[in-house]
Design a protein around this nucleic acid. Structure first.
Lengths: 161, 161
DNA sequence: AATGAAAGTTATTGTTC
DNA sequence: GAACAATAACTTTCATT
């Protein structure tokens, strides 16, 4: 189920093109990768069915939504049992400022990506939604100056192909 | 240019629906938010023209691409002038393992999200692509156990609407 | 600014190679 | 597995309210 999918050069070109612009028309995508539209549609459907493509999303500008200040919060959680972690995860995902949550190795168990209106609302979020909770023993805050998206993600070079 | 956009309840419902599934047909999206397809198309175009929606992307499963091990690298960079930072950024974005890069406040200047084949290739990436560079003075590595996506991002509550 | 209908394109299917 | 041709569906425009 979670084994790597077998992907030929056409699949890789499709994945690369779609990660650059998921709104390409199937007709345009087919021309870009060099196959017929029906073939291209077949490949894209297979990429979804095989779980390589898990979904489609829009990129929004948080500043345009009135949330120009973004930050990462690094959260240390006390007992660290599932019974306590699950409600914590739900609580974090329930905050309207939350853009993403990661469970990490290391001293800081969780990392939260948040987008806020200003420094004051960020402070209020940290104090009320995180520090105030019993299982949270420490919150570290790093503001985001700038973000760059990575190139399209492709499989590692296999050497032989 | 970077002021928040003025968004009415229809815009907010569109943004919410599209962030859940950007592949909704315009017809379906219109029905979901309760307006005519032509009106809906108009709204979506305006959201793009105003810069609220910046692009469309596919979500891929890194494990299915043969990159099941993901990590965040926290990088301390020495002199920290633009003349040295720009080549560093280009270098990081040029790595096929890089999924994202952030410039942060705090002691660790940069955070890199990477997806690798296994622990060995992660080690090789850290040593060859980061530690080996002159401007890099320290690299901290945290593996990712699990990731949760946030809910659709919407503007802060304004109180009056 | 939103609607409804008409025209133009596209997605999608079935068939053949 | 890929390409072609035909149908069904959608997107997009425009005149109207």
């Amino acid at each position: 189920m979670n084994e790597p999918a077998e992907l030929d050069p056409v699949d890789l070109r499709i994945l690369s093109a779609l990660q650059n612009n998921a709104r390409l028309l199937n007709k345009e995508l087919a021309a870009t990768v060099g196959v017929a539209p029906s073939t291209c549609l077949d490949r894209v459907n297979r990429l979804r069915e095989s779980g390589v493509v898990t979904g489609y999303g829009v990129d929004v500008d948080p500043a345009k939504l009135g949330r120009p200040l973004q930050a990462f919060l690094y959260i240390r959680v006390q007992p660290h049992r599932s019974a306590l972690v699950d409600p914590f995860v739900e609580h974090v995902l329930g905050q309207p400022e939350t853009r993403g949550l990661w469970h990490l190795t290391g001293a800081d168990d969780f990392m939260v990506h948040v987008a806020t209106e200003d420094a004051h609302s960020l402070q209020r979020l940290v104090l009320d939604a995180f520090t105030a909770r019993e299982e949270v023993t420490r919150v570290r805050t790093n503001l985001i100056f700038q973000h760059w998206a990575g190139r399209p993600l492709l499989p590692p070079e296999t050497g032989t192909g």
